[in-house]
Every structure is written in structure tokens, then in C-alpha cells.
Computed example of a mutant assay.
Amino acid sequence: MTIRLLLLLIAAQFQTVSHAQSKTYVLVHGGWHGAWCWKKVVPLLEANGNRVVALDLPGHGDDKTSPATVTLDDYTKKVVQVATAQTGPVILVGHSMAGVAIAQAAEVLGKEKVAKLVFLDAFMPKNGESVFALAGKAEALNKAAGKPTPGPSLSQCLLLADDKKTSVVDPDRVGQLFYQDCSADDIAYVKAHIGPQPMACLGTPVHVTDAQYGAIPKVYILCTQAKDLDKRSIAKNVAVQKMYTLASSHSPFFSMPEKLVAILQAL
């Protein structure tokens, strides 16, 4: 009986330590994508004992909101809603365009709820900046530094709807733009799932403060082989706690999920 009680106490202590080391990740996809893009990352993070939520932003994935009506405020409300529903602090991970969504959500949630902001090859804004503004600034700095354009620009790969409210990525160029180091099966999967992007979300500036957004530790993961845009200047746009690099395309969640998860797990 004494031995059994001792074993139970040891097991309880182990579970307590394990639970204390686990983290809660809220994964926010980038433009034209959905929660589906994290399908390789979620089980790897969960296997390490973490809680993981991959959400569909309004108008994306399985969310049935009309993309033509979606605003950055809608994105923000969704991220805030999902983060608030989790017990304890969360790590917000935003890929690409979602950098502005997690930044604006962090302004609402504050440092008590958001333990870290992770910008995965993402647009990391200062107050008053939008995705378009950040992209334009990065392109100008790259040109001034004599850095060659890696390929067709993102704007050249977009097909705008007649009303200009949404866009889709040219299916003939999506592989070379976002997935040049991914498998043919992954690219086929993407083409079957990628959808329209609300354009208003890309042009709307964030409204953030030093007291809220500025007080939350930030981490940047730079994808050094990304073809859509060289984001080295964006990675320095706001002070970060640490910057990591992955020698990947813009989509390491498909091409090197284990390496991406190793970084996320180390946060």
C-alpha cells in the first residue's frame, strides 16, 4: 500500500511538471490560406504535450463569411475570441499577412493573456502600418540595397475580382511563389484548398500602443528562401526578443514542419 501510494505521488508530481511545461499555441494562417495549412504542425506540437488551436479567419477555410465583406476588425475579433477561450496565457503565431491580425489582437488582449507574439515570415507592424505599407517599404529598401527581386512580385501573381474586394493567387504561379521547396503532393493539396483573400484586410493600418502591443515579447522567424518578398527589413521593423531563420520557402509548415516546431517548442 505504501509503495502504491508512493508511485501515485510520483505520477502526480510528473503530471504537474509536464502540465506546467506545456504551452498553448494559437496558430493564425496567412493570406489566401486557412487552418488547413497547419496540418503537419498541430500534431507535432500536441505530441510534446501542448495545447494547440489552429483557427480559420473570417472568409477563409471552413468559415462561411463572404470574403468580400471581411475587414481587419473581423480578423481581430476572431483571434481575440479564440485566445480568450483558452485557459491561461497563449502564444500567438501569425504567418505572413496574419502578422497584422495578431498585432491588433494583442493590443486588445494585452500581456496578461499573450505570453509571446511569433511572426512567421510575417508582416510585423508599427502603429499605423498595414500589410501594403510594410510590403511597399520593404520593396523600396530592397531595391535601394540592390537586392534582386527573387521572382514575379506577389502583385503580379494575383487575380483580382471585378469588384477589387477579393483576390486569388494565380494557380500556375502559386507553387513558385510560396512552395518552391514543397512536395508535389503538398502543392496539389494547397491548390485544392487555397481560397480568396479579402483585400480590405491588407490595406487597413493597425492601431497599436507601446503599453499594450509594445509590452509583449516578440519573436521573428525569417524564411530566408521565400520568393514572395525578402522580409529581412520587416524582421527589424519592431524590436524583437529573438530572431530565428529557416532556410525555407514562405511555407515551412509544409516543407520543414519539424524544424519549425522545434523553434516554437523552444519559446
Rank of each mutant, 00 (worst) to 15 (best):
I3D: 14
R4N: 13
R4S: 15
L5R: 13
L5E: 13
L6P: 13
L6G: 12
L8E: 14
L8K: 14
A11G: 09
T16D: 15
V17M: 09
Q21Y: 09
S22Q: 00
V28T: 04
G31V: 07
G31S: 14
W36M: 04
K39Y: 15
K40S: 08
P43L: 08
R51V: 10
A54L: 03
L57C: 00
G61I: 12
K64W: 00
A68P: 08
Y75D: 08
Y75R: 04
V79W: 02
V80G: 07
Q81N: 10
A83E: 01
A83D: 02
T84I: 05
Q86S: 06
Q86L: 05
G88N: 05
G94D: 10
H95C: 06
A98N: 00
A98R: 03
V100Y: 08
A103L: 10
A106Y: 02
E107C: 06
E107K: 04
G110I: 11
G110V: 00
V114E: 04
A115K: 14
K116R: 12
L120V: 04
A122N: 03
A122W: 02
M124V: 02
M124L: 03
N127P: 02
V131R: 12
F132S: 12
F132K: 06
L134R: 03
A135G: 15
K137L: 08
A138M: 09
A138R: 06
K143C: 10
A145Y: 03
G146W: 00
P150I: 11
S153P: 11
S153R: 11
Q156T: 11
L158I: 07
L158T: 07
L159G: 03
L159T: 15
L160V: 09
D162R: 15
D162C: 13
D163A: 08
V168L: 07
V168R: 09
D172P: 04
R173C: 14
Q176T: 08
Q176C: 02
Y179P: 01
Y179F: 09
Q180H: 15
D181Y: 14
A184W: 06
A184Y: 01
D186P: 00
A192S: 13
G195R: 11
G195H: 13
M199L: 15
G203V: 07
V206S: 00
H207L: 12
V208H: 06
D210P: 12
A215F: 02
I216W: 05
P217W: 01
P217H: 10
Y220S: 01
I221H: 07
I221M: 00
L222C: 01
Q225D: 12
A226P: 07
L229D: 03
K231V: 15
R232S: 07
S233E: 08
S233C: 07
S233M: 04
N237L: 02
M243I: 15
S248I: 04
S249A: 01
H250S: 01
P252V: 06
P252G: 05
F254G: 05
P257T: 05
E258R: 09
V261I: 04
V261D: 04
I263C: 04
L264P: 05
